[in-house]
């Protein structure tokens, strides 16, 4: 069977391109927040996890310490660890292949892979690798384009870049708001972060909401 015509290949490619294209928003936002083009590209190459990348540039860009930025990004990156737990028994890889698989274990590669379940384990593995590499390639190319573009633009506000960043975060959180608990938590977290911004060092109003999430998780039965 030709790979190009397989439904798994089409799913992987369409996800890779559309998701990768958001890299423009990241590259532009990183530069608007004071990161260099090289630093923006390194984040996409090495961190390779959109929400974590937006978080570290957002927190440090707002004047937060490196520790606050790293902590916020890492809390957001924790879910990739859980994806690894799901993917390891499906991929069954060792050694160097496992090191590569870990790097491309993200929302999209895991999501496409799990969505191929009806087509069998071979399609699930193919979906994981194709989507992981596909997003990696497009995400990095578009990050570079966005970073260079933003550098050429000058004043980020004049191009709406300062509003694009919160809009990107909103676009990331919106599909996660399913239950009323999710929505209530979102509002409490937003209010807490705004209310404490004048009093706490930059970054803490954001990380502090993780504590609220843990408390809600402990109190609410799923």
């Amino acid at each position: 069977m030709s790979r190009v015509s397989s439904p798994t290949f089409r799913d992987s490619l369409s996800v890779s391109f559309t998701v990768g294209a958001y890299g423009v928003a990241f590259g532009a936002a990183a530069v608007a927040n004071g990161f260099s083009v090289v630093q923006s590209c390194l984040l996409s190459l090495l961190t390779f996890s959109g929400a974590s990348q937006f978080a570290v540039i957002g927190v440090i860009g707002a004047g937060g310490s490196a520790i606050s930025g790293i902590a916020t990004a890492s809390l957001l990156g924790f879910r990739n660890g859980l994806y690894g737990v799901l993917m390891a028994p499906i991929l069954k890889v060792r050694g160097f292949k496992r090191l590569v698989a870990a790097h491309i274990t993200i929302d999209e590669s895991t999501g496409v892979s799990l969505s191929q379940e009806a087509r069998g384990p071979e399609a699930m593995r193919e979906g994981f690798w194709l989507t992981g590499f596909g997003v990696f390639i497009f995400w990095n190319l578009f990050t570079l384009a966005g970073a260079l573009g933003a550098k050429a633009m000058g004043d980020p506000s004049a191009w709406g870049l300062d509003a694009a960043v919160p809009a990107a975060f909103l676009g990331l959180v919106w599909p996660r708001l399913k239950s009323s608990t999710d929505k209530t938590l979102a509002i409490i977290a937003a209010v807490f972060a705004i209310a404490t911004t004048p009093f706490l060092p930059a970054g803490l109003p954001i990380i502090g909401t993780a504590v609220i999430a843990v408390i809600v998780g402990l109190r609410v039965k799923a």
Partner: peptide, 26 residues
């Protein structure tokens, strides 16, 4: 469960802070 809730809290906080604060002012 907590793993699903933490990103909601952090991302919502980031939306809020990035849209209505500058340095430590609202």
């Amino acid at each position: 469960r907590i793993n699903l809730l933490i990103p909601i809290a952090l991302l919502s906080a980031l939306v809020a802070v990035q849209s209505v604060t500058t340095k430590s002012a609202i």
